[in-house]
Computed example of a mutant assay.
Amino acid sequence: MPTIGFGTWQIPINEHFQSTIQTAIQLGYRHFDTAQIYNNAALIGDVIRESGIPRSEFFLTSKIWASHRSFESAEDAYAMILEQLQVDYLDLLLIHWPAAQGEPMVWQAQNAGTWRAFEKIYKAGAVRAIGVSNFLPHHLVPLLARAKVKPMVNQLEIHPGYPQRAALRFCMDHGILVQAWSPLGRGTLLRHPTLEKIASAHGVTPAQVALRWCLELGIAPIPKATDFHHQKEDLDIFGFELTPEERDELTLMPQTAFSGLHPDTVTF
């Protein structure tokens, strides 16, 4: 899996969408992250097919939405995702959000049922890897107790100002790779004085600092950028290192740029 992914959540679906993806591919992005709810898979599939680059060079991730979060419908959701992307397989399939409302026995069973469908798809060789998104430790513990195949990835909102240290530690202890969605805090961190100070010390941008912080914590970030120069910057994070003090300062920042989307309180 490429270390730096390209997020497509909230990229406007307009006449510029496909050119945004085309530019990312030209710059070297090969890992693209989408989801059922984004409604952009067909457009992404068109650009990838027309790029002339073999499918095998891409790493494609998608996530099933809450409407298909059950054993009975997860396979149908996967078939729809493949059809929209116009590919024969995904590199990574995730449960977008855990069921977490109501009686614990009920939502735990719902998550476990969805995961059984994922295991079936994986064991059939129809997907290369399976995982979850937005699962905190108390969602993962009951899932792991029933799982025959452990989640390989957990995609979480993580960035300076929202490090999710307990969830990150739990995943690392259980051999689950963590990916960071919204690693730039939806753009808010680009104007944060702490990141600006550290960026100035290294001659880089605040975005590069935030992404480098993820990298040094063992997290694979999935930034989103529509501007050519920002896309290029987001890939160029391997030429500097944060000091331990800078890394700690970013980790210990007060809560900043949190989206407000918490797995236990969202209504989906």
Rank of each mutant, 00 (worst) to 15 (best):
I11P: 10
G260C: 08
Q26D: 13
W115T: 04
Q10L: 08
K150T: 08
T194F: 01
N154S: 09
I4R: 03
P12Y: 00
H96E: 03
C214A: 11
E83R: 15
T256L: 04
A180Y: 04
P160S: 04
S200I: 04
M152H: 03
L43V: 02
V127N: 10
L85T: 01
M1P: 15
C171Y: 09
I11V: 15
H16P: 00
A24D: 04
T8I: 04
V106R: 14
W9N: 11
E249F: 00
A100D: 09
L93C: 12
L144M: 14
P151V: 07
W115M: 06
T194I: 14
I219L: 07
H68P: 00
S51A: 08
S182C: 13
A129P: 12
G7P: 12
L250N: 08
L217V: 01
P223G: 11
R191M: 12
V149W: 02
C171S: 11
I219K: 05
M253Q: 05
L217N: 14
H96G: 05
M152N: 01
E15F: 06
E72H: 07
T251S: 14
T267V: 12
S67G: 07
N14M: 09
P160I: 05
H174V: 10
W97L: 05
P160Y: 03
M172N: 13
G203E: 14
F228G: 00
V141G: 00
Q108M: 09
T265R: 11
E50L: 11
P137Q: 07
I121L: 15
L195F: 09
E245S: 13
P142Q: 06
